[in-house]
């Protein structure tokens, strides 16, 4: 379980999060929605301790991630997979080397066992046989799926998805959604998905939270999201130009 308590985060003079409280329960598929720049991706990086909160704390399985030493932090991170917005594949490595890297660094598997694992994960994300390609040779959707294969190669307990369907065609986006659901259901992985894609929200989410102006303004399931009285949430969900949300990004 992940517990986020009163987390605040600023970058220079820009306040991004103003006291977020959120629990993520084991096995659930939590989707975080909100406008660009509202702090969704920052929240994911805070959970991984890639960024540090200015105030508040985050507990992962009752361990305060901010306070642990480097060895314990890395042991905690091994329980996570992180799919970055642009996949963040290592350009100098092949697909197989990208996916293998955590195995090389953290396990004593033989080379053939590693390659079996790479093939298994590539099969799972629907890209068998591309082990020897370089990231530059892949399309955006393929890069995301390779990034996902790398994120799940250590069989993590939690997967954090940063806008997994952004920039993909609808069919590819639907495939990624299906993959998120399959991974979560088959392997009982806890998933936190950050997205703007309302189709994806409808398909994937067990629970949806919305961030706005640095605060959490909604938490509920998909039907509650669609029937909410909150005008801000309604405007965002329906994608309307008129409403309480300003057309320009909010100036903090």
């Amino acid at each position: 379980m992940i517990e986020i308590r009163d987390v605040e985060k600023s970058f220079e003079n820009k306040v991004v999060l103003r006291g977020v409280d959120l629990d993520v329960y084991d096995g659930e598929k939590l989707v975080i929605i909100g406008r660009s720049g509202c702090g969704k991706s920052v929240l994911l990086k805070l959970i991984m301790n890639l960024l540090h909160p200015d105030k508040g704390y985050i507990l992962v399985n009752d361990i305060a991630i901010k306070k642990v030493g480097q060895v314990d932090l890395f042991n905690l991170r091994k329980q996570f997979g992180f799919l970055f917005q642009n996949a963040a594949l290592f350009d100098s490595m092949t697909v197989a080397e990208n996916i293998c890297l955590p195995l090389v660094e953290h396990t004593k598997l033989s080379k053939s066992q590693m390659m079996d694992k790479v093939a298994e994960k590539l099969e799972l994300v629907g890209l068998p046989g591309i082990e020897n390609l370089k990231p530059a040779e892949l399309s955006g959707g393929m890069r995301k799926r390779v990034g996902l294969a790398r994120a799940i190669v250590m069989d993590p307990n939690y997967i954090l998805y940063d806008e997994p369907t952004t920039g993909l065609d609808p069919i590819m986006a639907a495939n990624i959604d299906k993959l998120i659901i399959e991974l979560s259901d088959k392997l009982n992985i806890t998933s936190i998905v950050v997205t703007h894609d309302m189709q994806s929200v409808s398909k994937v989410a067990d629970r949806v939270v919305m961030l706005h102006n640095g605060r959490m303004i909604f938490s509920g399931n998909v039907s509650e999201l669609k029937s909410t009285d909150n005008e801000v949430v309604r405007q965002f969900v329906n994608g309307e130009a008129e409403g309480p949300i300003q057309p320009k990004p909010h100036k903090y």
Binding site: K45, M48, L50, Q70, F74, N75, R77, K78, F80, G81, F82, F84, Q85, N86, A88, L89, F90, D91, L101, P102, E105, H106, R150
Partner: peptide, 13 residues
């Protein structure tokens, strides 16, 4: 390009 963050997220310093 977030590759350094990716290394950290894979528990690699």
């Amino acid at each position: 390009t977030e590759q350094i963050d990716a290394l950290e997220s894979l528990a690699i310093d």
